[in-house]
């Protein structure tokens, strides 16, 4: 019974639904989204790999590889804060849903700039 005024009010007020796929909403500044590494700034120090609570980062200095498992990442942002050169950043955009397993492997050469992203099954 007491619900009727609320229901009537809803009927005549603006639509509460966010029309998501049609017009996506701008995310808030500082939202913790995708993790990206700027290979030009990365010095392969391995601080991110040591601090990551989920241990989803691997730094292989010898091969010059920075590896990231997005499927195990918990998007806490601890690595971003720990990064001494500011090469890691979190975009204000969530990581999209995918149909295949992925793994990010970045080739980092401290001097020259060569990079490649590959998806592995």
């Amino acid at each position: 019974m007491f619900m009727i005024p609320v229901v009537l009010k809803n009927l005549f007020s603006r639509c509460a639904t966010r029309p998501y796929p049609q017009s996506p909403r701008q995310l808030f500044v500082g939202s913790r989204g995708q993790l990206v590494n700027d290979v030009e700034k990365c010095i392969l120090c391995g601080t991110c790999a040591r601090t990551c609570p989920s241990q989803c980062l691997t730094v292989r200095r010898k091969e010059g590889l920075w590896e990231y498992e997005p499927f195990a990442c918990v998007f806490c942002g601890v690595c971003v804060e720990a990064c001494p050169t500011g090469s890691l950043a979190q975009l204000s955009q969530w990581r999209p849903a995918v149909r295949e397993r992925e793994r990010v492997v970045l080739k980092v050469e401290v001097k020259s700039q060569e990079s490649g992203v590959k998806s592995e099954k």
Partner: peptide, 15 residues
């Protein structure tokens, strides 16, 4: 389909 995130956002789940 894999939806990453911890937790995944409702928008990502819709995707």
């Amino acid at each position: 389909v894999y939806v990453p995130g911890c937790p995944a956002r409702p928008e990502a789940i819709i995707d």
